[in-house]
Design a protein around this nucleic acid. Structure first.
Length: 213
DNA sequence: TCTTCGATTTACT
DNA sequence: GTAAATCGAAGAG
């Protein structure tokens, strides 16, 4: 029998480390999302690291803007962006203030509140698909830009918390190129996932969109 | 100001 | 397998 997940909240020190150290360490952790509709808990199974202004694949590459400002702030906060005209994706800000590191939450397993997640993810054919992909994960958790900047540590009114959970052993952590990231950004193996977990999203290489006529 | 295209998902051939 | 959906950020002019 597996031991019950540790429900001790992670402190800000956890996030105040280099992003490449934090990212694999997030696998197996439990994200708690409180909303008016009720709580949802998600065990993280897949993440991607974005390493600040020096990383061509990162939104922070071209410096600080109103959209990405949270990435440049203190660690332990949530960065939410809107993309493709219809989806949101959720990141956790890591590293010291000013470094603009963040970890994209790409997939997870809903361990509490699956019924609520199903209502928000009507196209999901089974529970493994509820949070299988970054925009799906954000949809299941009802995350949008209004939650940009929310604190994960130390704010009792925050809609988010992250618990110690059951960290995935190093030998169970797989790594590879980041999904959907093109150019020089694709050379780094900065995507981390739990080996053999059915909730991990399929890899898709970056494809430049065709010009509309 | 105008044009392009994205850390994606879904539906359809 | 491919394309559409749909809007805002960012680069070009």
């Amino acid at each position: 029998m597996d031991a019950a997940p540790d429900r001790t909240p992670l402190t800000r020190d956890f996030f105040d480390r280099p992003v490449l150290e934090v990212a694999p360490d997030l696998l197996g952790r439990v994200l708690v999302r409180d909303s008016d509709d009720g709580p949802i808990e998600l065990r993280l199974t897949e993440v991607e690291a974005y390493a600040g202004e020096a990383d061509p694949g990162s939104h922070a590459y071209r410096g600080k803007t109103p959209r990405n400002a949270v990435m440049f702030g203190p660690p332990g906060h949530v960065y939410v962006y809107f993309t493709y005209g219809m989806w949101h994706c959720m990141n956790l800000v890591c590293g010291p203030e000013g470094m603009a590191g963040a970890v994209l939450l790409r997939a997870g397993e809903i361990t509490e509140g699956a019924e609520l997640a199903r209502k928000r993810r009507l196209s999901a054919r089974n529970d493994k698909e509820l949070a299988k992909g970054p925009a799906r994960l954000a949809t299941a958790l009802d995350v949008d830009r209004s939650l940009d900047g929310a604190d994960l540590c130390g704010d009792p009114n925050s809609p988010f918390r992250i618990l110690t959970g059951t960290p995935v052993e190093a030998k169970q952590v797989s790594e590879g190129p980041r999904t959907g990231v093109g150019g020089e950004g694709s050379v780094h193996p900065w995507r981390f996932w739990t080996a053999n977990d059915p909730t991990v999203s399929p890899y898709r290489a970056h494809v430049p969109r065709r010009r509309r006529t």
